[in-house]
Computed example of a mutant assay.
Amino acid sequence: MNCKIEKVLNDHSGNYIFPFFWLRGEDEKTLRSYMQKIDEANMKAVCIESRPHPDFCGPKWWEDMDIILDEARKRGMKVWILDDSHFPTGYAGGAMAG
């Protein structure tokens, strides 16, 4: 059997899917449930998409990030974070003067 197919069938392949995890200010239970569902689909990484979050870089956003990072640690998942609230990036959530 092809070595790559054998690895996939035995759950020894790498992770190649990094779904966007759209943050909109959901409650803790929902965030944890989403991470669980992503993990159960054998996707071991997410890319945080914060543009729709109502409190980007504010206290609620950081609280949500703590929850997601906690779930990622428990599940051995990677987390990638898009770096800004809108395109083009470099805006730093309004913290930097233009």
Score class of each variant (00 low, 15 high):
Asn2Ser: 14
Lys4Arg: 14
Ile5Thr: 15
Ile5Gln: 14
Ile5Lys: 12
Ile5Tyr: 10
Ile5Gly: 10
Glu6Trp: 10
Glu6Asp: 15
Glu6Ala: 13
Lys7Leu: 13
Lys7Trp: 05
Val8Leu: 14
Leu9Met: 13
Leu9Thr: 10
Leu9Asn: 15
Asn10Asp: 08
Asp11Ala: 12
Asp11Cys: 10
Asp11Thr: 11
His12Ile: 09
Ser13Met: 11
Ser13Leu: 09
Gly14Trp: 00
Gly14Asn: 08
Asn15His: 07
Tyr16Asn: 15
Tyr16Arg: 14
Phe18Thr: 04
Pro19Val: 08
Phe20Thr: 11
Phe21Gln: 01
Phe21Lys: 01
Phe21Thr: 00
Phe21Ala: 01
Trp22Cys: 13
Trp22Tyr: 15
Leu23Glu: 03
Arg24Cys: 09
Gly25Leu: 03
Gly25Asp: 04
Glu26Met: 05
Glu26Thr: 04
Asp27Leu: 08
Asp27Cys: 08
Glu28Met: 07
Thr30Leu: 12
Arg32Leu: 05
Arg32Phe: 04
Tyr34Met: 13
Tyr34Asp: 11
Tyr34Ser: 11
Met35Thr: 01
Met35Ala: 02
Met35Ile: 01
Met35Cys: 07
Gln36Tyr: 07
Lys37Tyr: 11
Lys37Leu: 14
Glu40Asp: 11
Glu40Arg: 06
Ala41Tyr: 05
Ala41Phe: 06
Ala41Pro: 05
Ala41Asp: 04
Asn42Ala: 12
Met43Thr: 06
Met43Asn: 03
Met43Glu: 03
Lys44Asp: 02
Lys44Ser: 03
Lys44Met: 08
Ala45Leu: 02
Ala45Asn: 06
Val46Tyr: 02
Val46Met: 03
Cys47Pro: 02
Ile48His: 05
Glu49Leu: 12
Ser50Ile: 00
Pro52Tyr: 06
His53Ser: 00
Pro54Trp: 01
Pro54Phe: 05
Asp55Lys: 00
Phe56Ser: 01
Phe56Lys: 01
Cys57Ala: 15
Cys57Glu: 11
Gly58Ala: 04
Gly58Val: 04
Gly58Trp: 05
Pro59Ala: 02
Lys60Glu: 14
Trp61Arg: 01
Trp62Asp: 09
Trp62Gln: 07
Glu63Pro: 05
Glu63Arg: 14
Glu63Tyr: 12
Asp64Ser: 09
Asp64Tyr: 05
Met65Gly: 02
Met65Ser: 02
Asp66Thr: 11
Asp66Gln: 10
Asp66Phe: 07
Ile67Asp: 01
Ile67Ala: 02
Ile68Tyr: 02
Ile68Arg: 03
Leu69Glu: 03
Leu69Thr: 08
Asp70Arg: 09
Glu71Trp: 02
Ala72Leu: 07
Ala72Trp: 04
Arg73Met: 13
Arg73Asp: 15
Lys74His: 06
Arg75Gln: 08
Arg75Lys: 15
Gly76Lys: 08
Met77Ala: 09
Met77Ser: 06
Met77His: 06
Met77Thr: 05
Lys78Cys: 12
Lys78Arg: 14
Val79Ile: 13
Ile81Ser: 07
Ile81Trp: 07
Ile81His: 07
Ile81Gly: 04
Leu82Tyr: 12
Asp83Thr: 15
Asp84Thr: 10
Ser85Met: 12
Ser85Phe: 12
Ser85Asp: 15
Pro88Tyr: 10
Pro88Lys: 08
Gly90Phe: 09
Gly90Arg: 09
Gly90Val: 09
Gly93Phe: 03
Gly94Ser: 10
Gly94His: 10
Ala95Asp: 13
Ala95Asn: 14
Met96Arg: 14
Met96Ser: 13
Ala97His: 11
